[in-house]
Amino acid sequence: SPEETRKYRGTFKELGRESPYRNRSVEENLDLFQRMRAGEFPDGSRVLRAKIDMSSPNLNMRDPVLYRILKATHPRTGDKWCIYPMYDYAHPLEDYYEKITHSVCTLEFEDHRPLYDWVLNALNLPDLPQQIEFARLNLTNTVMSKRKLRRLVEEGYVAGWDDPRMPTIAGLRRRGYTPEAIRNFCERIGVAKTNSVVDIRFLEYCIREDLNIKAPRVMAVLRPLKLVIDNYPEDMVEEMESENNPEDPTAGKRKIPFSRIIYIEREDFHENPPKKYFRLAPGREVRLKNAYII
């Protein structure tokens, strides 16, 4: 039973004990496994365990479970199977059959690597894959857990995996992040063996740095304030020349119309300006970008 398995497994301070069924014959084990496969036993009544070392300091190596009985409908194979492999058994074999050379995992799988290697070596397979662990990428004020992100999607809190609020590649793409900015961010933070949290402002810095040399410049007035230039001809419109990107001379230039009436942001004018206010105010002059001093 699961309770007996836990009891015999031991703890970090106490060595495990061998199961009373550990020394069955090969023929008896094969017969039981075939009956498991045929669906003769109920869920949880039988398991197939690897025979490794019950005194190992690594609890994952104390005769771990390889197969268990689960009579559930599989989304692909239907009811064809009623026994399923455990993750630690399926993982190395899937990597081998899919010709994975390096299986990159997060740090919590480091203690599972001896079992990963044991499964492959026990089968005497050539050209074995290698498991390598590294620290998980964590960002400040950002949910990165796939389980929690999946809940946001399935419960309708976001529009999908590509919702711009999601920290997924698809979400970052819709938010405007370029591949170069993401690669640059990953190269700068590097790969570590210690868990840490990276400030999300560094990711934002990388996208600003990338877009600064690529993105064309445009201007917009969000809260317009009408400004009339009294000494400018009413029927005259000039076309001022402005660079599309001051960081990239090859981006060319564009024409901006200039006339007697223009609109500025409300925050750019103050009737009673405070100290160190350098925008437009009564009796003050400012220079308009690509135009005149008014």
Rank of each mutant, 00 (worst) to 15 (best):
R223I: 06
K193E: 00
A50L: 14
R35M: 04
L222Q: 10
R174Y: 04
V104Q: 15
I262G: 10
Y277A: 03
R24S: 07
M219V: 05
D268T: 15
R22N: 08
R6Q: 09
T178R: 10
P2E: 08
I83H: 11
N245Q: 02
R17I: 01
L152R: 06
A215T: 08
L70H: 11
P85A: 15
P249N: 13
S25F: 00
E234K: 14
S196A: 14
M61C: 02
R147D: 05
N23E: 07
S25Q: 13
E204S: 08
H112P: 03
K146G: 02
Y89K: 13
E243Y: 05
T140L: 03
K289I: 07
A192S: 15
R68H: 14
L123A: 12
L203I: 02
D268W: 10
P85D: 10
P274S: 13
W118S: 03
G10W: 01
D88C: 08
M166D: 05
P179G: 13
Y116S: 06
R136Q: 09
E271G: 09
N290H: 06
L123S: 05
I262Y: 13
N23I: 09
I52Q: 12
M86L: 12
H270Q: 07
E108T: 00
Y97S: 06
G190W: 13
A281N: 04
D95G: 00
R136T: 00
E94D: 12
